[in-house]
Design a protein around this nucleic acid. Structure first.
Length: 174
DNA sequence: TGAATGATCACG
DNA sequence: GTGATCATTCAT
């Protein structure tokens, strides 16, 4: 389930070094019956990747200025993904700092607000639509790493920033 | 609380 | 084409 991703490491190998972050906040978007899921309207060019086999990256552009990273979770043909909302920098913090300064217009960038939001962590890892559809199980540049941690004490709340499906408590964090 | 800012999709 | 909506962030 989605909460299994909590505590896992997200690793990206860039030209100038490696960035590793520990996933500490996720949200589930599951199937066409979930009104907040992008695939609830059916298969479109935008949500195509959600229909793929689990393990692919679904990166989309929203609000005219931000990207969000999801990991596809289910079988091919069944649209579902987990939105990575936040990570904790583990390695390459200096690179993250550079990337955030490059991408954000905000003057204030502190250790606390480096990667604590879906738009921000995409800036931190320099993710864009080129990463959309990448197979994380096959790539050696961008993948998940089991940290050995098992997070069982996570919290569970409604998802953030959506207008439909607010009743479902599918946001997990610790 | 609302501005920034542009892709996406339905409609016809 | 048009208009509504949007899984956000930041400053006021």
């Amino acid at each position: 389930m989605a909460a299994d991703l909590l505590g896992k490491f997200l690793v990206i190998q860039t030209e100038v070094g490696r960035i590793v972050g520990e996933i500490n906040e996720v949200e589930s978007y599951i199937g066409q019956k979930d009104p907040a899921c992008h695939a609830s309207v059916g298969r479109t060019p935008r949500n195509e990747v959600m229909f793929w086999e689990g393990g692919h990256a679904y990166v989309y552009f929203t609000y005219g200025m931000y990207h969000c990273l999801n990991i596809v979770t289910e079988k091919s043909g069944f649209p579902s993904a987990v939105l990575i909302r936040s990570i904790i920098p583990v390695e390459g913090t200096d690179l993250i700092l550079n990337n955030r300064r490059k991408s954000s217009r905000s003057a204030k960038i502190s250790p606390k607000n480096l990667t604590n939001g879906p738009g921000k962590l995409c800036q931190a890892l320099q993710l864009n639509r080129h990463h959309n559809g990448l197979d994380l199980t096959k790539s050696n540049q961008f993948f998940l790493l089991d940290s050995g941690k098992k997070i069982t004490n996570f919290k569970r709340t409604p998802r953030i920033g959506i207008s439909k499906g607010k009743r479902l408590k599918w946001r997990f964090y610790y």
